[in-house]
Every structure is written in structure tokens, then in C-alpha cells.
């Protein structure tokens, strides 16, 4: 069993502030962390390592500084880490990212052994799209199980995996054949704290680093800015909403309730809710 976990180093967007004077992002001092959804993917992979002896390879496309995040994954227990880093990758949107990530998994499979399962996070804190996972699955021609909140069973003999997919209105129990790609929610598990031997191993660890030149068959028109169909044309900070509070009064609670109900039903919210 060989599991690949896709991780991305991101600025902790929860700590990003907007400068009220300039309306721009204050990125200074915002720590770089492993996208926290991805850690839940890693944790699940490590549980398979603990229970069925799976081998776990972590991969990331990113700048050289992302080594730090990969080392954190090694500390938690991953066996190997690969950083795909090249200036030519810069400016990638989800389409270009999924291309490089998929190429990387292909190369990982060639060099470290066949891949049975890939974990991605639900989404990243900076990109926030959740599109890279499905993109990678498509390119590798794996079946994808997205928004997984529980892995029910992994049947090594029959090469199947059964999971709970989280949906707005319930939970879907789904089974598929390996190899497969799974994107995970935080409900899945609680990532472990690295052990001391893990931390010591990580401190001495150097991830494998690949650049474009390491991929014999890479199509340079599909990577980085050039390979990205989408472009950000502008960003802005939304005006805080002005609220004109209407105070409702009436002779009795019933009269007030009737008034409120009437207003609710004639509001935009009602049509959005499908009441009207």
C-alpha cells in the first residue's frame, strides 16, 4: 500500500488583516502553515501506515520555503517528501497546478512504487477552490471521492475503499476501487502531534526536490502562468453593510408576530429560501 498526500504551504489566512486605511491585505507577519485540511489527509494516511503498514509520500508544489511544511509532515510520520519547485510553476491556477501535481504523482509512482491512494485537502486557505483534487483525479484517471468525513473501510484484498461523503443534506456512503483520490474534511480525524524521534528525523531530513527539468515529458505550455486559463482582474474589500433597522411594535405578541411574518414573506430572503 502506497499513499500520496498532497499538501500546500499557505499563509494562515485567518490571521490576515485588512489595513483599514489602504484597504489592502496585511500579509506581514502572517505565518506560513501547512494548509490545515491537508494535515487531516496526512493523518488518515498515517493511520493506514500504523494499521496496515502503508508507505506514505507527501508531495507539494511550491517555493523552496515549502520545505519547512514538508518537514513537518516527515515529523508526523511520512516516509518520504517531494517538493516540486521551479520558477516556471509560478502563477499557476488550479488547472496548471493539477497538471503538475498529477505529473508528480506519476513520477512518484515510477520511482517509489505504484500509488494506491491519494489524499488532498477539501480546499486550500489561500486558493479556497477545492478544484485541484478533482483535477488531479481526472488527469490520473482515478475515481474521486470528495468531501470525505470518514473512511469506513479499506479492503486491501479487493482494492476497495468505502467512505462517508459529507453533503449539505446528509451523508453519502460510497465505495470505489483503488487507486482513488480522496479530498478530506477536518471532521475526518485529529492530526497527531509529532513524536520526538519524528521531529529529530525531520530536522535532518532533506526532501526530494524536482524542477521542470526532472520531468522528461512535461508540456511547458501547461504550467505556471502560461498554463492557467483564469486571471485575477481585480480585488477589493467590500463595504461594510449598512443596516437600517426597522423596529416592530404592536399591541400584543400575536400582532407583532403576524407583522414580522408578513414582512418576512415579502422579503428577498423569502424568495431566496424558496418560500415565495
Amino acid at each position: 500500500m502506497h499513499i500520496v498526500v498532497c499538501i500546500k504551504q499557505v499563509p494562515d489566512s485567518r490571521e490576515i488583516r485588512i489595513d483599514p486605511n489602504t484597504n489592502t491585505l496585511v500579509r506581514q507577519g502572517v505565518p506560513a502553515i501547512v494548509n490545515y485540511y491537508d494535515l487531516h489527509g496526512l493523518e488518515e494516511a498515517l493511520r493506514f501506515k500504523d494499521t496496515v503498514g502503508a508507505r506514505v509520500t507527501v508531495i507539494s508544489m511550491g517555493p523552496p520555503s515549502a520545505e519547512k511544511s514538508l518537514r513537518q509532515c516527515i515529523a508526523m510520520g511520512a516516509d518520504e517528501a517531494v517538493l516540486v519547485s521551479d520558477r516556471a510553476f509560478a502563477g499557476a491556477d488550479t488547472l496548471a497546478t493539477s497538471y503538475v501535481v498529477a505529473l508528480t504523482i506519476e513520477k512518484v509512482a515510477q520511482e517509489f512504487g505504484i500509488v494506491d491512494l491519494v489524499f488532498c485537502g477539501k480546499q486550500t486557505l489561500d486558493g479556497d477552490t477545492g478544484q485541484v483534487g478533482p483535477g488531479v483525479a481526472c488527469r490520473l484517471d482515478y475515481d474521486q471521492l470528495t468531501y470525505v468525513e470518514k473512511v469506513v473501510a479499506l479492503d486491501e484484498k479487493n482494492h476497495t475503499i468505502t467512505v462517508h461523503r459529507h453533503l449539505e443534506d446528509g451523508v453519502e456512503v460510497v465505495q470505489t476501487k483503488l487507486p482513488a483520490l480522496i479530498t478530506v474534511l477536518t471532521e475526518l480525524n485529529k492530526p497527531r502531534r509529532a513524536s520526538l524521534p519524528g521531529v529529530l528525523k525531520a530536522a535532518q531530513y532533506k526532501p526530494v526536490v524536482w524542477s521542470t527539468n526532472d520531468f522528461a515529458n512535461i508540456d511547458r505550455s501547461k504550467i505556471g502562468l502560461k498554463g492557467s486559463p483564469t486571471i485575477v482582474s481585480k480585488t477589493w474589500v467590500p463595504e461594510p453593510r449598512k443596516v437600517n433597522t426597522e423596529m416592530i411594535d404592536g399591541p400584543s405578541p400575536e400582532a407583532i408576530a403576524a407583522d414580522v411574518t408578513k414582512r418576512l414573506w415579502s422579503s428577498e430572503a423569502a424568495s431566496r429560501l424558496g418560500w415565495a
Binding site: 488550479t94 488547472l95 480546499q123 483535477g135 481526472c138 470528495t146 459529507h166 453533503l167 486559463p229
Partner: peptide, 23 residues
């Protein structure tokens, strides 16, 4: 941009391929 919609859109956009803006 539901769970299902995002799952499906991600797959379609990659196959076409084309750009996809989320959410």
C-alpha cells in the same frame, strides 16, 4: 457551488480543459 457541484465542475473543467472559478 454545492459539494456535488464543485466535485463535478472540477472534473469537467479539467477534461475540457478550461478555467473554473469557484464559489
Amino acid at each position: 457551488a454545492t459539494y456535488t457541484g464543485r466535485d463535478l465542475a472540477g472534473a469537467i473543467a479539467t477534461h475540457l480543459p478550461t478555467g473554473l472559478t469557484a464559489d
